[in-house]
Computed example of a mutant assay.
Amino acid sequence: MVNPVSRAAFALAVFTAAALVGACRDTGKQALFEISGRLVVFNYREATLTYLVTLNPLRPIEEGQTITTTMDNPAGGGPLVFSQKLFVGHTKVTIESPELECVVKDRPYKVAITVKSKAGKVLQTIETTMVSAQDQDMLPDRPLVVGSGYDPNPELAGHPDGRLPGGRGVTCPA
């Protein structure tokens, strides 16, 4: 037969162990989103380059939440900052940067994503980097086609490779 004191001691040990394990858990805010994808998008036909980040919601999106994204500007100067609304029920969030210039192969560019509540309270900040496998100079200087009929761009007449004598018209930092 089991001694009642042994039972009580065992129960106390189990309770103490459970309390210690529970105390070791991070009691901070749980993450709302995780990064599910990052991509540097070269659109050769349109002669554009953008960053694309996808987020996976870990909890349901609440009404009025927004995301503000701050990115290093490869062309120099201040960072690029843009915001977007989040929509209840979405199963993923896609963040696309404005068109970029001067992206350099293998150089990391910082990206910070801030999730805010309807009242503007910061709920989560996600930091990552974007790294391109190609230099931007692989793109043509102007879009290769224009219009809904995909007509050849008249600016590129006589330049089938898409390269113009003046280039893209952008001076990139060294």
Rank of each mutant, 00 (worst) to 15 (best):
P4Q: 10
S6P: 09
A9D: 12
A9G: 11
A13C: 06
F15M: 12
T16D: 03
A18R: 11
A19E: 12
L20N: 12
G22I: 08
A23G: 12
A23K: 13
R25K: 11
D26V: 03
G28F: 03
K29W: 12
Q30Y: 08
A31I: 01
L32V: 09
F33N: 12
F33P: 11
E34Q: 15
I35S: 03
S36H: 06
G37M: 02
G37A: 10
V40H: 09
N43F: 02
N43I: 04
E46V: 06
A47S: 14
L49R: 10
V53H: 04
V53Y: 14
L55P: 13
L55D: 09
P57S: 10
L58R: 14
E63F: 09
E63A: 04
G64M: 07
Q65M: 13
T66V: 05
I67S: 00
T68W: 00
T68A: 01
T69H: 00
T70Q: 13
T70M: 02
M71F: 06
D72H: 01
D72S: 01
D72L: 00
A75E: 14
G76T: 02
G77R: 08
G78C: 02
V81S: 02
V81A: 00
F82L: 01
F82P: 01
S83I: 01
Q84L: 06
K85A: 08
K85C: 04
V88R: 14
V88Y: 07
T91L: 08
I95T: 06
P98L: 01
E99K: 05
C102R: 02
C102V: 00
D106P: 06
R107N: 01
P108S: 06
K110T: 07
A112G: 04
T114Y: 10
V115H: 15
K116C: 03
K116F: 02
S117G: 09
S117M: 02
S117Y: 13
S117L: 02
S117H: 10
G120I: 00
K121L: 02
V122I: 11
V122N: 10
E127S: 10
S132F: 00
S132E: 05
A133S: 15
A133Q: 15
D135E: 04
Q136H: 07
D137Y: 08
D137C: 04
D137M: 04
L139Q: 07
P140C: 01
P140V: 00
D141T: 04
D141H: 07
D141S: 00
R142L: 02
P143I: 01
P143Y: 10
P143T: 05
L144R: 15
L144S: 05
L144M: 15
V145C: 07
V146Q: 14
S148R: 12
S148W: 11
G149N: 15
P152S: 04
N153L: 01
E155P: 10
L156Y: 15
A157V: 08
G158Q: 13
G158T: 12
H159Q: 10
P160D: 00
G162Q: 06
R163W: 04
R163G: 07
A174R: 14
A174V: 08
